[in-house]
């Protein structure tokens, strides 16, 4: 996007796509299960018929959202996510429909951490969380070595302290 500042070029791990898919599959299955239980309860206790309709409605919405967030979003997300680290700035660019570009000075970073949940563990991935004084940013799926390297890199650069903060 910018000519003078180097546009971030680093991608997420390829395994990010299946990892994201698994993540949203699990959450959608849980949602569907909840609606199933609700439906069963409403049938069993013969609640009003509009409660059925609400359950149908929400189930339909969940299915539509499943198509999007299991089928399409992981691919798009991986395709458009870029990050870049240099001695002055951390850059994160993401999204196609809602394109977002963030530029964070290293000196304003307060903390970085690597995290790994059960799904990421299965794919040998780590997520990175970067906190500044004002907000927090994430790089969701990186291979282990890369994640640790980037984390240490940021930690090293972020050691620089500015006068008067």
């Amino acid at each position: 996007m910018e000519e003078d500042i180097q546009t971030p070029t680093h991608c997420l791990a390829v395994e990010a796509v299946p990892a994201l898919r698994w993540g949203s599959t699990i959450s959608h299955v849980i949602m569907l299960a909840i609606f199933g239980v609700l439906y069963a309860i409403s049938v069993y206790f013969s609640w009003w018929s509009w409660t059925h309709w609400i359950v149908y409605g929400f189930t339909g919405l969940t299915l539509i959202s499943a198509v999007w967030s299991i089928g399409l979003r992981p691919v798009y997300f991986h395709k458009h996510f870029r990050y870049g680290v240099n001695d002055e700035f951390l850059q994160i660019k993401s999204g196609a429909f809602h394109e977002s570009y963030e530029l964070i000075p290293m000196a304003k970073i307060q903390a970085v951490s690597t995290n790994q949940g059960p799904i990421l563990r299965r794919f040998g991935l780590y997520s990175l969380e970067i906190e500044t004084m004002g907000s927090s940013h994430g790089i969701p799926a990186l291979p282990k070595e890369v994640a640790i390297e980037v984390r240490n890199q940021i930690a090293r650069y972020a050691k620089i302290r500015e006068v008067d903060e």
Binding site: H98, Y101, E102, L103, I104, K108, T132, M133, G134
Partner: peptide, 27 residues
């Protein structure tokens, strides 16, 4: 020097119009 981070965001519509939303965060 008082701004702690900046962002540029564009929705699809904004991309068509060649405009963007800039954001800045201050302490």
């Amino acid at each position: 020097d008082k701004i702690i981070e900046v962002s540029v965001k564009r929705t699809k519509l904004q991309q068509w119009f060649g405009v963007a939303t800039i954001g800045l965060i201050n302490r």
